[in-house]
Simulated assay, not measured.
Amino acid sequence: MELEGIDEMIELSKENHAHVLPLLKNLAYEPVFAYSVIERNQSGKVFVDHNENPTCSLIINSYGQYLLVKSGDNEYFMSEVVDFLLNDQNHSKYYDLYASTPELLFQISESLAGKTVLLHRSSFTFDLSKFQHLKKPNALQEQFVMKQMDKALFDKYKNEMDASYDSLWSSSQQFADRGFGYCLVMDDDFASVCNSYFVGGGYADIDIVTVDEYQNKGLATLTGVAFIEHCLNHNLVPNYNCDAGNERSIQLAKKLGFVKKYDFPMLWWHQDQRIISDYLKRFNYSNHSSE
């Protein structure tokens, strides 16, 4: 991703990404995508106001997830962030902007009015005891086979179901090395898939997709369970968040042993206004601009 209008901010070398970790403490949610950049599990950039002891940072995951964090006031840095966000050339197709506090997000939203829309996300904490006591669906019908995602399955999934995984993981090898997932297949076709969106900070973000014709059969629960068991066997904490208006996803989270913790705001820009409009209608947003 080529960045324009951001040359006044300091880009940390990959070896110094950890300098921003103190700014990520005590957030109300886990910014796993930011940790994935810091730990170099997934590609991205880290911009700061000072090399050694930064007080402000913009962490950019190449997938389009941005995190703005700060512990002090730096108006110049903030103005540079605004300039960067307002320049469409800096973004592939969209960005999701998260901030360390709602106050910081609303502060920057004033400069992005008319450019972004305000969304709300629900974050969850994983409750091991609830997971251990969940009622798993009935045994799989014979035609379904559970498989761990390998490089070939990853490429098949990227090509057939979600092309955005091309920017999420730079290659099938990187996914095999740093990510993981499980899928239920029927006759070599995907029925339900649970992949890691981001891995970092000791967490793994969950992404579950079930093909329409196989929904309401408990398949998402089964792939989710396989994913969570993998996390538990590899010292990772499963992490779940979704749009606050996505009731089906919220119910699935609870079914898998997650407890809703917090709703937090974010700003979303997309180059295609129709996609924004459809999303806002789908999840019952009445507000179509940033506040």
Rank of each mutant, 00 (worst) to 15 (best):
D96F: 15
N287S: 12
G218H: 10
N61V: 09
V259Q: 10
K14A: 11
Q148S: 15
F131G: 04
S170D: 14
G72R: 04
V46W: 05
D127G: 00
I6Y: 07
D188S: 14
S92C: 08
E160R: 06
L85P: 02
S62N: 13
C231H: 12
H230W: 09
A139D: 08
D205T: 12
L222P: 01
V209Q: 14
Q89S: 14
N51T: 12
L236D: 04
E110S: 15
G257T: 05
N241G: 03
K260W: 10
Q174L: 10
G200H: 07
F84H: 07
Y66P: 07
A244Y: 05
A163H: 06
L168H: 02
Q89D: 14
D207T: 06
S109M: 03
S123Y: 13
A204L: 02
N41V: 13
K281V: 14
I10Y: 07
S192H: 02
L119N: 05
D49L: 08
E15V: 11
Q89V: 01
E11P: 02
Y94M: 11
P102A: 13
Q132R: 11
N41P: 03
M266A: 04
K255H: 08
S79C: 02
K45E: 07
S289A: 05
G201D: 12
K147E: 15
K156W: 00
A204E: 00
P137Q: 02
N235T: 14
S172R: 11
E30H: 15
S289R: 09
A18C: 10
S79A: 07
P137D: 05
A244K: 08
K136F: 05
Y279S: 10
K255Y: 04
F175H: 02
L219Q: 13
V209L: 15
D263F: 00
A244C: 08
Q132S: 10
P31M: 12
A34R: 08
L153N: 01
S289M: 08
G218T: 08
N87I: 00
Y262Q: 11
V237S: 15
N41R: 12
I276S: 00
H19M: 14
I38G: 03
L134V: 12
Y66W: 06
R40I: 03
D166I: 09
G218R: 07
V237F: 14
R282L: 11
V199H: 05
N233W: 04
D278M: 10
D177A: 13
A28D: 15
L104Y: 02
V237W: 03
E110T: 11
G257F: 01
L105T: 10
V46M: 02
S79V: 04
S123D: 15
Y76A: 03
K115I: 07
A226H: 02
G218N: 05
S13L: 11
V225F: 01
D187H: 11
S62P: 02
Y98H: 12
N241A: 13
E52K: 10
D73I: 14
D272L: 06
Q132N: 15
K254G: 01
L267H: 03
L118F: 10
